[in-house]
Design a protein around this nucleic acid. Structure first.
Ligand SMILES: [Mn+2]
Ligand SMILES: [Mn+2]
Ligand SMILES: [Zn+2]
Ligand SMILES: [Zn+2]
Lengths: 141, 141
DNA sequence: TAGCTTTTGAAACTCAATTTCATTAGCGTG
DNA sequence: CACGCTAATGAAATTGAGTTTCAAAAGCTA
């Protein structure tokens, strides 16, 4: 089931409505570069849909995270960011603090060690955050 | 050299002043439970030192981070938190999303794999964030 | 102590996030 | 296809952590 279907399913089961704005935001979000903040997605939408309000974009992104088709990220720049979620392709991030570039990485051995650490403290993990901050190859001269 | 000395040294070399407020905040910060937010530390201080302002607490915590005797943490609850930094004892965190308990962990194998990942992308790491969110043993029933 | 510089604390301001509320739009029913 | 209920929308207002401002106070050096 693709992400659009998951979202529509979620709306139906929650008694929420399938609106024109939500469909446009969903489409644009899935088509856009990832790791967009609410403000950035709002600006992209404004070009073709200037009547869609900021509050609606914000509320809809929250809905995406709620129904599991997006993840909310926070790279410490004071703005939440969102990316489409691929449940079968979990990844973490390298964040360049100079140019803002975001590199995604997958390292199953780290994921495995995380599980070991959690067990060590009888801790039940729901989610995790793992980010490396520094300079990308272009920004380290 | 202990943390108080590092801080005093830092003040001197930067031409900053050794004030009564800064000394009280330092002492209280080092003696307190770790992972306090600015607001929490401010409240603790208010008991014995009601004249010290919030802005001063905030500015002083920033100074601690600047001179390397504290780290600023962010666990996604919208409030920055600070902890005394032990340069020779880096650790990461398990955060219970129910009771707020924070468990510290050290896993050198994860630190090593992080370095490998960074190399893979020619990325120069300055810092990292690694937190596992979920339920502590008391909160998983 | 004088003279200069930094600090302090209350209040104002910033800015992303969130809420409010009057109006508009879905959607199930007849 | 109306009708009527409920949820959604969007502009504006509010929140709250963080930051800045500024006049008065305090630290430092000579
Ligand atoms: Mn990503
Ligand atoms: Mn810690
Ligand atoms: Zn870069
Ligand atoms: Zn707990």
């Amino acid at each position: 089931m693709d992400r659009a279907s998951v979202f529509n399913q979620y709306l139906r089961t929650k008694g929420l409505k399938n609106t024109r704005q939500r469909m446009i935001i969903l489409e644009t979000f899935l088509a856009s570069a990832s790791h967009y903040s609410t403000e950035e997605l709002y600006q992209v939408l404004r070009t073709d849909h200037p009547r869609i309000g900021y509050a609606t974009v914000h509320r809809t992104l929250k809905l995406f995270a709620e129904c599991g088709i997006a993840t909310e990220l926070n790279f410490g720049d004071g703005q939440a960011r969102f990316e489409p979620l691929y449940t079968d392709h979990h990844h973490d991030h390298l964040v360049c603090t100079r140019c803002g570039k975001i590199i995604e990485f997958i390292e199953p051995r780290i994921e495995q060690l995380q599980r070991e650490v959690a067990q060590r403290y009888d801790f039940t993990v729901d989610s995790h955050r793992h980010e490396l901050y520094g300079r990308c190859i272009n920004c380290s001269q």
